[in-house]
């Protein structure tokens, strides 16, 4: 199976190891992974800020950078949800009728990593192991834009040595929200603070998610306040125990 890798802009800049780990996993599952080095970004940051003209131009480049007939897999529920649910709005320029189907096949072929593994590949073949207690954070993009809830949990169940605990607020926003985290820092921080405290109180050693933007937000708070809890992307959890093709490190999201 041929898979096109989409490395979101912030993963490219801040968490390159996660992208390499994802390649390792996909290749372990017998996929042929291709990467177009011209790619940059799906255009979501500008869209969310209301600058749709700039977003549209970058979105059009995105469509040129990928082959619409092959799968695209990305370690981000947020980017996946944006392309899948909002590209037609952004690019059609008109108010879409209620039941506009997904016209461009690319919109049907883009997947977030964990949903792809569970829906399209035999994920039980991955033998990862990680000791400790983890709690899963449902990123808003993954949960509400893509409907991802059980896939990551299924994958984490299979990790040897990892105990998963649920917090009451797993579905509550971490407080990142793109420019919101900068424009309204006190509110953003208050939201993050509560997420971290609740995870710590549940006895978790790790906060795991499909979205590095969330993890980065929570990690920033954790580091500043010297908490022991760590944030880790689900790709990095699952790549543990693999013989990586590329040099790996501990796999924590901040290398």
């Amino acid at each position: 199976m041929k898979i096109q890798l989409f490395v979101p802009c912030f993963v490219d800049q801040l968490f390159p190891q996660t992208a390499f780990n994802m390649i390792s996993i996909l290749e372990k599952l017998d996929c042929e992974v291709v990467y177009n080095p011209q790619q940059t970004c799906c255009g979501q940051p500008a869209f969310n800020a209301g600058h749709w003209n700039e977003s549209k131009i970058v979105a059009q480049k995105f469509l040129d950078d990928f082959d619409p007939e092959n799968y695209i897999v990305t370690p981000s529920g947020s980017c996946t949800g944006f392309v899948r649910n909002h590209y037609h709005k952004l690019l059609s320029g008109k108010i879409p009728p209620k039941d506009l189907g997904v016209k461009n096949p690319l919109l049907r072929n883009i997947f977030e990593f964990s949903e792809f593994l569970v829906q399209k590949l035999d994920y039980t073949k991955i033998k990862a192991s990680m000791d400790g207690v983890g709690t899963y954070h449902d990123s808003c993009g993954a949960l509400r834009e893509c409907g991802i809830k059980s896939a990551p949990r299924k994958l984490l169940e299979n990790v040897e040595g990892l105990k998963i605990v649920e917090t009451e607020d797993s579905e509550v926003c971490c407080g990142f929200g793109g420019t919101f985290a900068i424009k309204y820092e006190p509110i953003s921080t208050a939201m993050t603070e509560q997420k971290v405290h609740n995870a710590v109180e549940k006895g978790a050693d790790y906060i795991i998610s499909t979205d590095l933007s969330c993890l980065m937000q929570m990690d920033g708070y954790i580091k500043k306040h010297n908490y022991k809890i760590k944030t880790i992307h689900i790709v990095d959890v699952l790549s543990r125990g693999l013989n990586p093709k590329y040099s790996s490190n501990s796999g924590y999201c901040v290398s």
Partner: peptide, 12 residues
């Protein structure tokens, strides 16, 4: 604007 409560992310 990143504030006092979050460490600046590390860029590889």
């Amino acid at each position: 604007s990143w504030g006092e409560n979050r460490a600046i992310p590390t860029f590889p």
